[in-house]
Amino acid sequence: MTITTKNKHEQLIQLVDQYTVAKNRFETPISGLILNRWEAPTQAHSNILDASLCLIAQGKKQVILGEESYIYDAEHFLFTAIDLPVISQIITATPEKPYLGIILKLDPYVLAKLMLEAHVPFKHSTEDKKGLAVGELPHELTDAFVRLLQLIQTPDDIPILSPLIIKEILYRLLMSPQGDRLKRIAATGTNGHRIIKAIEWLKQNFFKPMSIDELANSVGMSLSSFHQHFRDITSMSPLQYQKRMRLTEARRLLMTEDLDVSSASVQVGYESLSQFSREYKRFFGMPPSEDLKSF
């Protein structure tokens, strides 16, 4: 790490640290930019990770997608091009050196538009198609995020300058070694783009009965191709994706909305309470009633 890069990284730590004092989460006035702080390692928990670019100014985190584990730190970034149900855990954090995280939400359609505007080269590939990846953090991205966070101190500049810096960040991401993976998903007309449309439908309708045939047809794919590309990108089948979204939302309802187990199961689309409890225990390690008590 060069002196200049080290200085930029120290600036990044300082900025995130000052904005997150006494809070675990800070939704900044910059649209889609969220800062996190944890002063101790956390338990693994299930959540929906929005399409986003994630940086760590300080600390270390693990994200599990399906059967695969991804670990990243201050020298790496993580991105997901689509919303994914994952298991996350902060694994390095102390009161003296808290975990300091940065999340910038991504819009695949903005990425596709940027690819067209900037004539970003794109080629089809048979390489890994997963919608989540970890890459080495280039100093250009660190510098851009420092400038973006500094805008919080001058709120009048945010409407004009933040879109320009975010556009630079997206361009840097697209041109990084991991960019090809993102391009294959975001580019209009690709199978990855069609899977994005299917996932958008699932996000809005996960509590409804689902016909895989109809969903595949709605995005213009054959059933076999839809299954294959969905699993390539998300590491799970459409039904598994729907189930994880249902269970994750049910746990949120139980923990934050004061719903009872039966009401939560119905609200996320389960017709059988016993099936809900069985699948909840299999996914979270304990029945919903016990999980709620321990919480």
Rank of each mutant, 00 (worst) to 15 (best):
M1R: 13
T5C: 12
K6T: 15
L12S: 00
L15M: 04
L15A: 07
V16Y: 02
D17Y: 13
Q18S: 08
V21M: 13
K23V: 13
K23Q: 14
R25H: 09
R25L: 12
P29Q: 09
I30W: 05
S31A: 12
G32R: 03
L33P: 04
N36C: 07
R37I: 02
W38C: 09
E39L: 08
Q43T: 11
N47F: 10
L53A: 09
I56E: 04
K60T: 05
I64E: 11
E67Q: 14
Y70W: 09
I71Y: 06
I71T: 13
A74Y: 10
F77Q: 03
L78K: 02
T80F: 04
D83P: 00
I87D: 05
I87M: 12
S88Y: 03
I90L: 10
T94W: 04
P95V: 15
P95G: 14
G101P: 01
L106H: 05
D107M: 06
V110D: 12
L111I: 14
L114E: 09
L114S: 01
M115D: 03
M115P: 00
L116D: 12
H119D: 12
V120R: 05
P121H: 13
S125Q: 12
D128M: 10
L132I: 15
A133R: 12
V134R: 03
V134T: 14
E136D: 14
P138D: 15
H139N: 12
E140Y: 13
E140N: 07
D143S: 15
A144F: 02
R147M: 10
R147Y: 05
L149I: 04
L149R: 02
L151W: 01
P155C: 03
S162A: 15
P163M: 08
P163T: 06
P163C: 10
L164R: 10
K167R: 14
E168F: 07
I169P: 00
I169W: 01
L173T: 02
L173Y: 01
L174S: 02
M175E: 11
P177S: 08
P177R: 06
G179Q: 10
K183V: 01
K183G: 03
A186T: 10
A186L: 01
A187N: 15
G189A: 11
N191P: 03
G192H: 02
H193Q: 10
I196R: 01
I199Q: 01
Q204E: 15
N205L: 10
F206N: 07
F207M: 10
M210I: 15
M210L: 15
M210A: 15
D213H: 12
E214N: 14
E214F: 11
L215P: 00
M221I: 00
M221A: 07
S225F: 01
H229I: 04
I233M: 05
M236V: 06
S237F: 05
S237Y: 08
L239A: 09
L239P: 01
M245N: 11
M245Y: 15
R246M: 14
R246Y: 04
R251I: 04
R252M: 05
M255F: 13
M255E: 14
D258Y: 07
D260Q: 14
S262H: 07
A264H: 03
A264P: 03
Y270E: 05
S274F: 13
Q275H: 10
S277G: 09
E279Y: 04
E279A: 04
E279F: 02
E290F: 08
L292W: 03
